Amino acid sequence: MKLAQAMALIVPPIVDLKRRALARADGEHTMYPTLVALREDRVLAVVSTPRMAVTLSTAHTLAVGLAPQLVCVAAQVTLPDGGEGIAYTTMTRDHTAGFALQPYAVHEVSDGVHEAMGAQIEFSTPERGQPEDRALMDELARAMSHDPMDPTRVSRKGDVDTGGTNPALLPQEEGRLAIDAGTCASVQRSVVGVGGRTLYLAASAAHATRLLAHGMPEQVLLH
C-alpha cells in the first residue's frame, strides 16, 4: 500500500479525533498519540492514549494479533514555523516507511456581539516529509517484524489434548475472529489504566455479533 492510499484512509478518523480534542471541556485540547492499524485496505483498529510510549507499545501486540498490512502513529506536533500540525509515521509489513505532516490552524469564532463562541479548526493537506528523529519509525519496524498469529492454528475453547494429538482447531475464519477479539481485549486492558481507549471497526453488524461471541469487549467495538 502506498502512502497516499494509506493517508486517504487514516486522515479522516485522525482529523475527527483532533476536532473532538478541541471540544473537550477540561481545557486540554492536545490530541492523544494514536495508533491506527489497516488490514485489507480499511481501518481496522485505533488505539489512543495520553502517553506516546504506551500507544507505541501496543504496535507490537497489534502487529502480532491483527496481522495489519500497515500501522501508523499520528501525533500532534509543533512545526518549525511555530505552528501546530499532526505528524503521521507509517510502516508496512514489508518495512516500507512513510512520513507526512498535516498543518492546521485554530481560530476563535465569534458572532461579533457576544464573547467567543468556540474554536474552529482548519486542516491543510498532509505533505510527505522526513522525520527529525527516526526512533518512531524504527520502533514500528520492530513491531512489524513480528510474525502474525496463524488463524488456522487456533484451538477451540474447552478442548483438552489428552492423547498426544492436536486439539480440534477452529476454521480459519473463526480463528481470525478469535484472534482479533483476544488481541483487542488485551490491548484495552493495557491502556485503560492510563485513560486510553481501543476501538475495533467491524465490517458489518453480523461481523460485530460474531466478534462478541469470541470475547470482543463491547466497549471496543464499532460497526
Rank of each mutant, 00 (worst) to 15 (best):
G158I: 05
G158R: 01
G158F: 00
G158K: 06
G158S: 04
G158E: 04
G158C: 12
D159A: 14
D159S: 13
D159H: 12
V160I: 14
V160S: 03
D161K: 10
T162Y: 08
G163M: 10
G163V: 09
G164A: 00
G164C: 00
G164F: 01
G164N: 01
T165Y: 06
T165L: 15
N166P: 09
N166T: 12
N166M: 13
P167W: 07
P167V: 15
P167E: 05
P167M: 11
P167G: 08
A168I: 09
A168F: 13
L169W: 05
L169G: 03
L169I: 07
L169S: 04
P171Q: 08
P171E: 11
P171I: 07
Q172K: 14
Q172T: 13
Q172D: 08
E173W: 02
E173P: 01
E174W: 11
E174R: 13
E174N: 10
G175F: 03
G175W: 00
G175C: 02
G175R: 00
G175I: 01
R176M: 02
R176L: 06
R176K: 13
R176V: 10
R176I: 02
R176T: 12
L177P: 04
L177I: 04
L177M: 15
L177N: 02
A178E: 05
A178K: 05
A178C: 11
A178R: 07
I179D: 00
I179H: 00
D180K: 06
D180Y: 09
A181T: 06
A181K: 04
A181L: 03
G182I: 05
G182E: 10
G182P: 07
G182W: 06
G182F: 02
G182H: 10
T183G: 06
T183M: 01
T183F: 04
T183S: 04
A185P: 06
A185L: 11
A185Y: 02
S186R: 13
S186N: 12
S186E: 11
S186H: 14
V187G: 07
V187E: 02
V187N: 00
Q188E: 15
R189N: 11
R189H: 15
R189D: 15
R189C: 08
S190P: 04
S190W: 04
S190R: 15
V191E: 00
V192A: 13
V192P: 01
V192G: 07
V192R: 15
G193T: 05
V194R: 02
V194N: 13
V194L: 12
G195M: 01
G196F: 03
R197A: 12
R197H: 06
R197W: 06
T198A: 15
T198N: 02
T198M: 15
T198E: 04
L199F: 14
L199R: 15
L199P: 03
Y200V: 03
